[in-house]
Nucleic acid binder design. Sequence first.
DNA 1: ACCTGAACACCGTTCAAGT
DNA 2: ACCTGAACACCGTTCAAGT
Lengths: 207, 207
Amino acid sequence: MAPTEKAPPKPRKEPRQARAKVTVDAIFEATLQLLLTDGPRRLTTTRVAHRAGVSVGTMYQYFPNKEALIFALNARYLDALAERIETVCRNMAGSRAEAMVAALIDCYWQAKTERADVTRALYRSVAELDNSSLIEAFAERVDTATQAMLASAPDLAGREATPLALTLVTVIFGTVRNAFERGLSPAEVAHLKGELCSMCQVYLRAR
Amino acid sequence: MAPTEKAPPKPRKEPRQARAKVTVDAIFEATLQLLLTDGPRRLTTTRVAHRAGVSVGTMYQYFPNKEALIFALNARYLDALAERIETVCRNMAGSRAEAMVAALIDCYWQAKTERADVTRALYRSVAELDNSSLIEAFAERVDTATQAMLASAPDLAGREATPLALTLVTVIFGTVRNAFERGLSPAEVAHLKGELCSMCQVYLRAR
DNA sequence: ACCTGAACACCGTTCAAGT
DNA sequence: ACCTGAACACCGTTCAAGT
């Protein structure tokens, strides 16, 4: 009964020569620009190719279809985001649990906010295709990094890091995303961020 | 620099005769069914019309374009959901704050879970179009209902209901949505729900 | 190894004609 | 008042031909 759709699309072939790499980068850049200026509905292969300065045929050498292009663009973005989070988690090793949570919230919030237009454009672009594998891979990395971080907290002895990480990551990432989707005012956003932070910290102290 | 897109599409005209109402319902039902079985990518106007037993032209009498159809379908769903939440909020008036939060989480969680396929299909269908006005209207209703409920809690005297409602609603709805997007196991989901609940309750007790 | 662009199938949308 | 479906413009995708 599940929607019958193809497996997650992957890049057709890797660019081997330097000019090919330039081409692929140009295609990615053109896609993002069009997404930002015109929205996902007006994103056509012809326009992407034209903006990238290549022909449609060239685009299809590297991406089997339009979905694969959008998929790859999102994969790129999520990979960079996961890397940032992993770095923060590594840097916070050994700190107090409260500081860890604050840093995690800060990092994610910052990443979403600093290029809000990009975040929104990518959210919307990817949604019509099955991106669950991307989301799962991303969540897996973030969970793992958070677990490792929490396990190193001196004031968290005796609490299992695995379920704790799952809860915190889901609550934090879900809240940020939702805050992002709603049209909150800057004042409301600032207040919410503080409340989310203290909520997680109170939760850590309890029990 | 914002994506240049049309204003939120609205139904072209209201059905005046009985058979027209039947037609519109058939179109909605066909859209949902196709979304569930084939996914948003294979949702074409021709197929919707065919499944609904009408011609394409008929569909275009009630919806100015395909987007408007998807928009209206989502509006329907969110309206029903908001109504459920408002009812719960009314029913919980005068209870203790902890019970309120638990009921709110339960209601939303239940609504998302009982027809998980529908939830997912609608999420994906609406994402490529600008649904911010839908989201805002929904959030506004839920916020208002939650505020009114919290203001009636005997154990919450002296705490402002408005920012409290905003925080709780954003955290709860964001978490549920995120939990939903990740492919969590039933055991993890159950655990998460309990933790979210106690997290909100500890937060209410604090300060 | 990489690129081109005309050609094809199909989808969203319209509109003159019907009941 | 409501419905039909051929017709049109345009989009995704291919492939024979080029460098």
